[in-house]
Write a protein that binds this DNA or RNA. Structure first.
Lengths: 350, 350
DNA sequence: TTGAAAGCGGTACCAC
DNA sequence: GTGGTACCGCTTTCAA
């Protein structure tokens, strides 16, 4: 670590016999500087590889060209994709990004936000934890004039732009697909009743049934508490052992669906012939398990890009920090787990 | 966005009729300040929720309490786990972390490093891209006196601490396990010949065979170019269709192993009875596919923790930035894909 | 077209 | 124990 000292504006000015301000202006392409001076300064700077001291600039301009992103869990295909999109987009516009995770705990979220705020980020991207309700800690950013964009899991208490996936439509399409494939007794292994995404998916499920003239069967509505493979397995067991087993299962998440498949395979139910299985999220693994799991892709990367673009537009004064909601379309990915009669034409329902 | 103005040291000093320096010292628990003054200042600060301006502090102290982490791919179970460990550890010590990804391209890596360097991070954690050889751009950090810790994919051209997984031992154990299970014709679908991790795994494979008195069969050594599921499938096909098919396949990665399994299942080979399959990395999905995939866990999270601790120790002057290598142990995870005769005792080999 | 100088908000040295 | 003050490196107003 040989500590090579960096040169500063002062050095350039001294060596070139000009003033610091002139040097500064020359480098920043300010108007009203002789072309020759500019050339001179730029060349000298280049030659001695002058790098402006970012901390000084930040301090002076009171902005850092950094964004913060807070997610419940980093080790998650969905969130790491969103983050990836956010980082890529931020980079494109000259921003760096701090990443924090909350493990779905508000307490952690509060600490993360406070740290981010005091570290002087220019704007925040956040997907709130399951525990978060009002988000006073997020409000603090707005109070300091720092824009916030919420994505995926959002709080309606906060007046910020929101970028969400159309859970309702995604679920609706998924279930309608099952109906078109001829499944008539579709169960739903859902999530918490107080998490918006879960509620919307359930609503989509119900609406698809209703629209297509099917009744909603109470025994077909299950609720996960920890949304695990284990629960998928257990609930599927419960469903299949009941006196009226379903012929298809729409799961809140691919993970749950994997559990469902595991049970079904163990008991030698044919997928998709006897039972169809539909996931949600389209994780990488959905294409790797067998049978391939049909799922609803949430376009996570796009979501990261979109959210970041909105945030940067606000920072650039090109947009306002209103509470507009942007919806990212979902995409139904059909794989073997629902591809019964896949070589025939689909028959119309009703 | 109602722009609430923050108070500063100046305001505190004025209101309390003391000097700015006293206020500063009181808040930072400097020695030689009357307890009463401290109390007074702290109370006032608390009440008017004074938050020191981080940019000013950074500027003055010439450090930012931020670290940078550069990885080839963020959307990767392994790397997101490392990052998670790094972020957690950094947080514990008061550091925030910037995350960058390179998509395995040196060009991107150079940009990422330059950005990170100019953004004033205190230290760097990096796993180099496959294309990186010398890493002059990383050297620049060292030249500026900023410590660097390399992890997983490291360059020996750089004199920094390195935290790596014991690929050799991991592979050795994996292959020895296969041998103990009675497999006698073990193939290896490996990676690039010029990437250290691949080389080490191959070396482990060969050494395990040799140690146990088996010969290395040239036709059993395959090399992936893009390390995909597809390649796993293709190479397995090639192996199984040859005149001398293997009875077990040790794959460079779980992804490749999934491809192998896909082929084997398609052709109705019994796993693990006819063919055993071993992966490497122990991705989440290894436990979800069926049959469950035996694999070598790399303790990614631990790696992130360890690397970050080393970096922070250097920053705190508790350690030097020498080029010591730290090895994270691997762990063999046995699942169904190699559990032939799982209810019998293993028979000794040789 | 250029230069001088006033800060940005703290920290830390030096004097009392 | 406390106050005064010189910076940190750069941007930006004002004057020339």
């Amino acid at each position: 670590m040989s500590e090579k000292r960096r040169i500063g504006l002062k050095d350039i000015a001294r060596e070139l016999g000009i003033s610091i301000s002139t040097a500064s202006r020359a480098l920043n392409a300010y108007p009203g500087i002789a072309d020759e001076t500019i050339k001179l300064v730029k060349e000298y700077a280049e030659k001695h590889n002058y790098v402006p001291n970012t901390m000084a600039v930040n301090f002076r301009k009171n902005k850092t060209m950094t964004l913060g992103i807070v997610v419940p869990e980093l080790i998650h295909y969905f969130f790491s994709s969103v983050i990836s999109g956010a980082i890529q987009t931020a980079k494109k516009h000259g921003y760096s990004v701090f990443v924090s995770q909350t493990d779905e705990k508000v307490a952690n979220e509060i600490v993360a936000c406070r740290t981010l705020l005091s570290s002087g980020i220019d704007g925040l991207l956040i997907s709130i934890s399951n525990e978060t309700i009002e988000g006073k800690h997020i409000q603090e950013f707005l109070e300091e004039g720092k824009p916030v964009v919420q994505f995926d899991k959002v709080s309606d208490y906060l007046e910020t732009p929101k970028v969400i996936v159309d859970d309702f439509q995604g679920a609706f399409n998924a279930v309608e697909h099952l109906l078109k494939k001829g499944y008539k007794k579709i169960a739903h292994i859902g999530g918490w009743a107080d998490v918006k995404n879960s509620v919307e998916r359930k609503r989509g499920y119900m609406e698809a049934l209703r629209t297509n003239g099917f009744e909603i069967h109470g025994d077909f509505l299950l609720e996960c508490t920890d949304i695990s493979e284990q629960e998928g397995y257990e609930f599927t067991k419960k469903l299949m052992e009941s006196h009226n087993p379903p012929d298809a299962i729409f799961c809140i998440t691919d993970l749950v669906a994997i559990g469902a498949i595991k049970y079904l395979k163990e008991k030698n139910f044919q997928i998709p012939e006897q039972v169809g299985v539909m996931g949600f999220s389209n994780w990488q693994l959905a294409g790797m398990v067998s049978p391939g799991l049909s799922s609803v892709d949430q376009h996570a990367y796009e979501m990261g890009v979109k959210s970041t673009e909105i945030l940067i537009n606000i920072l650039r004064g090109k947009a306002l920090c209103t509470d507009q909601t942007h919806i990212v379309k979902t995409e139904l990915i059909i794989r073997e787990s629902t591809s019964v009669k896949s070589h025939k034409d689909q028959e119309p329902i009703n």
